[in-house]
Simulated scan of single mutants.
Amino acid sequence: MKIIIGNKAYSSWSLRGWLAVKQSGLHFDEQVVPLYDDNWEQRKREDDLAPSAGKVPILWDDDAVVWDSLAIIDYLADKVGRDRYWPKDRVARGMARSLSAEMHSGYVALRRECPMNIRKSFHDVTVSADTRTDAVRILQNWAEARSRFGQQGPYLFGTFSAADIMFAPVVTRFVTYGFTLPGFAQSYVDAMMAHPWMEEWYAAAAQEPWTIQRIEDAAR
């Protein structure tokens, strides 16, 4: 298998897709492509990226090509077993899927106003009312998942799951933009940040030579 991802410093969807492949336990190769540089328009029309119209992440598995992080999770869950990605308990699994789908389609204000930028740390950032509403909704969902199903470990449903994969970029945003979090949420963020795969991603991002200026300027 090969997964093509964008800049690790900035690409939230790539982080999800990469974590999903790591969770599979299967061997894979990765290819990082710099987003929005001078060659981007040409690169996204090349063979490996053409099926997704340049959207990353995109997973190649022999003749199968899958893009969109949630689709990659579902594809890999079919390949290696759904219990590797979703809670075994039926009720918990239903909630995990709902939270993941809400993350996939929602929180537009938070995404727009606080783009992922894991090499930066901003302080005293003032966010809009819409972004605060998004953050409160996320914290409510985290609180319910942790209180109902998180007793067996530090993640949303105890053990690391697709729900944690989907919320990983939000964790980085809360860190980057200095969100003040309640204790349970800060503990979850700390656990996510200490996950070996997150540490590996951060270390690789620190070595990237590329910058996207509009994201660098987001909190100014």
Score class of each variant (00 low, 15 high):
residue 177 Y to A: 11
residue 179 F to I: 10
residue 117 N to Q: 13
residue 81 G to T: 13
residue 69 S to I: 03
residue 165 I to Y: 04
residue 127 V to C: 10
residue 104 H to T: 01
residue 80 V to S: 10
residue 155 Y to G: 02
residue 62 D to I: 00
residue 176 T to R: 11
residue 47 D to W: 02
residue 171 V to K: 06
residue 122 F to Q: 07
residue 176 T to N: 11
residue 158 G to L: 08
residue 104 H to G: 02
residue 75 Y to A: 05
residue 131 T to M: 11
residue 73 I to N: 00
residue 71 A to R: 02
residue 104 H to W: 03
residue 69 S to N: 00
residue 49 L to Q: 07
residue 97 R to N: 10
residue 62 D to T: 06
residue 148 R to E: 12
residue 115 P to Q: 11
residue 116 M to F: 08
residue 132 R to H: 14
residue 78 D to F: 01
residue 173 R to H: 11
residue 179 F to L: 15
residue 49 L to T: 07
residue 172 T to W: 14
residue 186 Q to L: 13
residue 51 P to L: 09
residue 128 S to H: 11
residue 72 I to R: 02
residue 146 R to K: 15
residue 80 V to K: 08
residue 118 I to W: 02
residue 152 Q to P: 00
residue 108 V to I: 09
residue 179 F to K: 06
residue 168 A to Y: 11
residue 90 R to I: 12
residue 138 I to A: 03
residue 156 L to T: 11
residue 70 L to R: 01
residue 99 L to S: 03
residue 108 V to A: 07
residue 75 Y to E: 09
residue 147 S to C: 05
residue 157 F to D: 04
residue 81 G to N: 09
residue 188 Y to C: 03
residue 96 A to P: 08
residue 58 I to N: 00
residue 150 G to M: 10
residue 188 Y to L: 05
residue 64 A to C: 03
residue 110 L to F: 04
residue 80 V to Y: 08
residue 153 G to I: 08
residue 156 L to I: 12
residue 89 D to F: 05
residue 52 S to A: 15
residue 46 E to G: 06
residue 165 I to M: 04
residue 140 Q to K: 09
residue 151 Q to M: 09
residue 86 W to K: 03
residue 152 Q to L: 06
residue 180 T to D: 15
residue 65 V to Y: 07
residue 125 V to R: 10
residue 138 I to W: 06
residue 104 H to L: 00
residue 133 T to W: 02
residue 70 L to I: 02
residue 189 V to T: 09
residue 117 N to E: 12
residue 116 M to Q: 13
residue 179 F to T: 06
residue 155 Y to H: 12
residue 118 I to H: 03
residue 181 L to Y: 12
residue 118 I to P: 04
residue 167 F to S: 08
residue 47 D to L: 08
residue 53 A to T: 11
residue 43 R to N: 13
residue 113 E to R: 04
residue 54 G to E: 09
residue 151 Q to F: 06
residue 133 T to E: 13
residue 68 D to K: 01
residue 105 S to K: 06
residue 137 R to S: 15
